[in-house]
Each structure stands twice: as C-alpha cells, then as structure tokens.
Write a protein that binds this DNA or RNA. Structure first.
Lengths: 195, 195
DNA sequence: TGTACATCAGTGAACGCGCGTTCACTGATGTAC
DNA sequence: TGTACATCAGTGAACGCGCGTTCACTGATGTAC
C-alpha cells in the first residue's frame, strides 16, 4: 500500500500535528503510538517508517509546538495595535486554558520535562530560550538596558506559565479558584506594565 | 509475619513519605508500587493492606506534601525576622530546584494534575487554596484591602511555581538559563515588594 | 500469669492488561527499458 | 508512450516487558479462657 511521496510527507506532518495536540492534552506518557496514529488517520504499524521511536516523535512534536507558539507570540506583539498586554490577555484566557492541545508547550509540559530523556530536555530548553528572546524583543524599549528587558521577559514568562499551569490544574475541581488565578496574574502584569 | 499495630502504622507513614518523595521526583506515572514499597522497606505485596489503590496513595502523598509545604511556608513567614522575601529566597533557590522530592507539590505536579483522576485533582486544588490562604495572611498589611492581598498572594504563587517549574525543566540542558530564570523571578518579586 | 488459637501484616509468585516495537505481507508507485 | 519490475509506505498480527493488582501462604500478635 505504498503511497505518493507527497502523501507520505503529509502523513508525517499529520503524525507530528496529532502528537503535538495529544501530548499537550494528556502528557507524553498519557498517549500511546496507536492513539496518535489513529488521530493521524493511519494504523500504528506505519509509525516506525516515519520515526525511530516514540522519543523521537516527542522531540519533533515539542519542537513543532514551540514553533507554533512563537509564531502566535510574534503575531500578537507585532500585529496592528499589538503589544504585551494583548499577549497577556490571550495567554491567560479561559480559551487557552481549555484548549491545551493547541496552546503553549511550556504550560503543557513544564513539570514532566525533568522525567523525560535528555534530547527532549534540550529541545524544551531551546524552546524556552527562543520564546524568551522573542518576548524580550517585543517589550517596550524604555530607558532600561538590554539585560533588564531580558530579566523582565524571563519573569513574565514564568508568571504566565505558572498561572496557566495552576489554572489548568484547578479548573476541574475548583473553577472559581482557576478563574481567580488567571485574573490575579493578568492584574499583576498590568500593574507591572504600568509602573 | 504480622507486626505490632504501632509498627504497621509506622509502615503506612513510611509508604506515604516514600511516595511523596518519589512522586515529586519522577511524577505519579514515573514510579511503581514496587519501587515505593522498596523505598519504604517493605515488599510490594504489603501495599494493598494499607491502600486501596495507587490512586489512593497518590491522594495521601499529595495531601501530605502540601501539609509539609504549608508548614515550611508558615515557619518562614512567622519565624524570627521572617517575611515574604525570606520565603521567596528559599523557594527560588538552587537547593529547592535540585531537591524536588522534598519541595513544593505545586512545582512538582502542576502540569500532570489535569491527567490524573478527579479525587487527586480535588486534593491538589484544596492544597493550592490552603497555600494561597497562608501566604495571604503573611503579606505585609498595608492600606490595601483583603481582596488586593489575596490577588497578590495568588499572583506570587503563580510566579514562584512557574519559575521553579521552568528552572527545573531547563536545569539539565541549560544550567545558565535555569539559573537565570530563578534570578529573574527573585528580582521581579523584590521589585514588586518594594513598590 | 500462662496457654491455645484466631487474626492479620507481610511475603513472593502469578495474572492480565497496555503499550512500545517488530515483522511478514500487500499492493500502489515510480523507474528502467 | 507503454510495459515489467523493484521499491517501499502502510497493514495488522504478534512479541516482550513493565506494572497494577490478586492470592495462597507464613508466622508473630494479641485475645479469650
């Protein structure tokens, strides 16, 4: 059942996309190859024609997720009347909270990364680095120097990721607390930007 | 091989303690019953005399971890010259980063919680709630009203948890980035407290 | 206080299921002529 | 341009391992007399 080279390439992309979504929704260890392949419209046997292992797929999916995430960040910072506040609003939204499969890889993976293999940890660290870089670029250029902007970018990312991770962790058991977390971090970011 | 009722109670406590450490180090799905029981000095067969399931143990371990964590928080806020800054320093330390097994359950578990069973999600949410409550109590009482203090407490927890989770996730692959994250969040908290 | 016996915490083998991975096979693709 | 054939993406059964859970058994505990 050989298929066109183009079809095969599309299949590979579909596998990465499905894995990216499912891994973010259920964790690396919470989804199996069979489920991912089903979501990609194939059977599990075809998997090893595209990737050497589940680990290799996790790396590709992580990488792809960060690329998407950076693109969204860039669009919000650079778009018409784009700015940091706009990004904060959509990052700390209920929509983002409730759709982890399409959201930030940091908020989805953070606490699992230390338990994963080294190559994936490197992918993740590179993703964080690139995300911070992009955010630092987008910060309003005030009198502060580059090092200060970088510090602010890092601290902002930490607050966003922590807020989203906790909002998701509490969403089911305590929707009020979850909402409160999102609002409190949004509020804090506004205050910090104002100062 | 029946043992004293007291011994049995000690065994149960040892199981919870071992589970609390191992779950925080490797995640709920990253450690098996056998490993936990070995760490507690017993064999795996004895487990079901103490707990109904691995899920039930996870709940007990989560609960216990939050209790420890709250006690530490209270000690740092109330102790001699204790204050928020003191807590921030030790929370965002390399020592805390490198010993997740004895550290904050939120920073250890946050992104795994949504994939776990409902009872555990409730335990976790209750733990977050109690941690926030305790921190809000410890905030310097300025002119701001109770709602403002609560918001600040929530935002502070989010920044601490996000910072620690990201510092851990990047520690292996990029120690510089990991250290930078801890420093940036510490810096931001000082600035916020100063204002 | 001493003795007989029921209780029950702990042991270790075994079960069953899920999941990552392998493999023999299929049949469409794309190339050599 | 048409035909024969090697290639190789995809299929689905099967393997092997780890892990949560069960169970028959052991022997010390603690209770009834």
């Amino acid at each position: 059942v050989k298929v066109t080279k183009q079809k095969a390439a599309e299949h590979r992309a579909a596998i990465v996309a499905a894995a990216g979504r499912l891994f973010r929704e259920s964790g690396f260890d919470g989804v199996g190859i069979a489920e991912i392949m089903r979501a990609a419209g194939l059977t599990h046997g075809a998997f090893y024609g595209h990737f050497a292992s589940k680990e290799a797929l996790a790396e590709a999916a992580c990488n792809h997720g960060f690329a998407e995430s950076r693109a969204r960040l860039a669009a919000r910072l650079d778009g018409p009347d784009g700015n940091l506040g706009r990004h904060v609003e959509s990052y700390l939204s209920e929509r983002h909270r409730d759709r982890p499969g399409r959201g930030c890889p940091m908020a989805a993976y953070a606490t699992e990364i230390p338990h994963q293999h080294e190559a994936l940890q490197r992918q993740f660290a590179a993703g964080v680095e690139s995300y911070v870089d992009r955010l630092a670029e987008g910060l309003p250029a005030t009198a502060e120097n580059a090092a200060d902007r970088r510090r602010r970018a890092v601290a902002t990312v930490a607050a966003l990721v922590g807020g989203m991770a906790l909002a998701r962790a509490t969403a089911q058991a305590s929707p009020e607390l979850s909402e409160e977390i999102l609002a409190a971090v949004r509020n804090q970011m506004e205050a910090a930007e104002g100062s």
